[in-house]
Nucleic acid binder design. Sequence first.
DNA 1: TATTGTTATACTCTATAACTATA
DNA 2: TATAGTTATAGAGTATAACAATA
Lengths: 173, 173
Amino acid sequence: MSRPAQLSQLELSAYFAFTEVSSLLRHEVEKQLRDVGKLSYVQFQLLARLGDASGGSLRMTDLADGVVYSRSGLTYQAQTLEERGLVTRAPSPDDERSTMVTLTDAGRAVLAEVFPGHIAVVRGLLFESLDEGDVGVLERVMTRVSGHLRANPPRSAGGRKRKSGTSSHDFTG
Amino acid sequence: MSRPAQLSQLELSAYFAFTEVSSLLRHEVEKQLRDVGKLSYVQFQLLARLGDASGGSLRMTDLADGVVYSRSGLTYQAQTLEERGLVTRAPSPDDERSTMVTLTDAGRAVLAEVFPGHIAVVRGLLFESLDEGDVGVLERVMTRVSGHLRANPPRSAGGRKRKSGTSSHDFTG
DNA sequence: TATTGTTATACTCTATAACTATA
DNA sequence: TATAGTTATAGAGTATAACAATA
């Protein structure tokens, strides 16, 4: 009850500019991914995550992370990517319940095709108008916010329905 | 050809943090809008835009702006909102081709219901971890970027298919 | 001819619930 | 019983192209 219910002029202005930039950036990134690699943004994130993983493999649940918010949604995307030959799926040797998703060479190739244009979009839209000081400031502020978000997982603006578990991911629940 | 093809470590870090924050913020905002007002994010933006317009009215094309990227998409949303009684549609007296979309009292009521929680989400996720200096810096940087985006309308990372017209909006074209 | 908007249609994506199988 | 994942299904949203009407 300590904080004002309204946002200050400065906060409002920051929020509007932030959403405008993020919407436009997202839209242009999606277009580039679709045009160059026939990938949706979610698919790109999944492939990129696999690309960063050791051996290009992850369990379904670990692959989901912040990218997808329902189990079935991930299954759908994994199927799509598998049909295109960009990933394979196989039961995990460790835990027969788990499915390991693995990036194929074709998957890596698509990632490689898509990266340069992706970076070009980000540079042209986000960084082109900023000097190095601005970038540093932006990095510091965004990193602080994201750290705060990780530390305080959103209670969905309400504050119920929390499990006590520690497991890596319960998707949405 | 003057700029490097890669992003610096600092830029990468800023970009990752930025997308993480914007994705999470977007997701939580969408959830709040859905739970409280049964609105999608796009619908909320359309209503909010009408709320800011004089008389609560806008032509379809002017309503679209950065919110929707295809004519048919806007028609679909306007229909949905009209069926729920949140807006009305009527031919413009000035130009018989145009449709004026007008916010109803019910539409304003839904906006009023949704605003406080919306602000609470934005505060809790975006501003809670920032001091006033951070907010000022964020505002300055985001405003600069958005100004740059407005001045240099994205060529969709390619550079073709541009009309010469000045008209307010050709949607995507 | 250009502009404004709608319609028809197809497709992508997401979420919920019921289900199977393993731990 | 809890966890991992799939399937069935339904619904929301988007885009393209063809269309009608007005400027």
